[in-house]
Design a protein around this nucleic acid. Structure first.
Length: 204
DNA sequence: TGCCAGGCCCTCTTTAGGGCCTT
């Protein structure tokens, strides 16, 4: 089965989607047939000022956000871009919470599973100094495609890390045709949801 | 009134605690 994957990354006003923090940038990268394909990126006006820490951390200023489209414009477009692809993010619970919260505001829903590159990396690269995205990019010899802590660059590098992990599995375990299935098996919770969802899709 | 994230994962665990990772 050729499964389309979309790797996604959010920059946000803070850490708590449920506490009212909002997305200020989204980047998404499609992986199709084992290669990076279409991309989606936009700033998002959160309807409030971001604090100086976020401006410094992301390089995204309040003046940049003032001219950006709001979530009502962005998220229906993102929903269409994602389609029925399996989603991947680095520390996926964070991005999943923001995606679901922003989708809810525009009456969109997410049905597909959300897999976590960090959870896979912790199993596949247990000797890495740590499992931050930037460290893993260096550890796995993934090219740096842009500025860290910007959504599209982080999504691209997460996608390349994901492909590198697939290659590690292929080379290390002789797997040629089932890397996604093995990755799913490395994730106890995600796998169950992914298998259920893929089975449901296959039965349609 | 006071507090303010949350989920995963490891271990000196399971009647729990603390570090990691995301912005």
């Amino acid at each position: 089965m050729k499964q389309r994957i979309v790797v996604i990354d959010f920059e946000t006003t803070g850490l708590s989607a449920r506490g009212g923090d909002r997305a200020i940038e989204v980047g998404a990268v499609a992986i199709e047939d084992g290669r990076i394909g279409a991309t989606f990126q936009t700033l998002i006006n959160p309807g409030r000022q971001v604090d100086s820490f976020i401006e410094s951390y992301t390089g995204i200023s309040n003046s940049m956000l003032a001219e950006a489209p709001n979530g009502r414009e962005v998220f229906p477009e993102l929903h269409e871009f994602v389609g029925d692809a399996v989603l991947v993010a680095h520390n996926a619970s964070f991005d999943q919470n923001f995606l679901d919260a922003e989708y809810q505001r525009v009456d969109c829903t997410r049905q597909q599973p959300f897999l976590c590159s960090m959870r896979v990396a912790r199993r596949l690269y247990p000797d890495a100094p740590n499992h931050k995205l930037g460290t893993l990019v260096d550890y796995a010899n993934v090219p740096i495609t842009g500025t860290f802590h910007r959504a599209l660059a982080d999504a691209e590098m997460t996608a390349l890390l994901w492909l590198a992990m697939l290659a590690t599995l292929r080379d290390g375990f002789g797997l040629e045709d089932a890397p996604l299935e093995l990755l799913q098996k490395l994730q106890s919770v995600a796998i169950a949801r992914a298998d259920d969802w893929l089975a449901a899709k296959a039965a349609e």
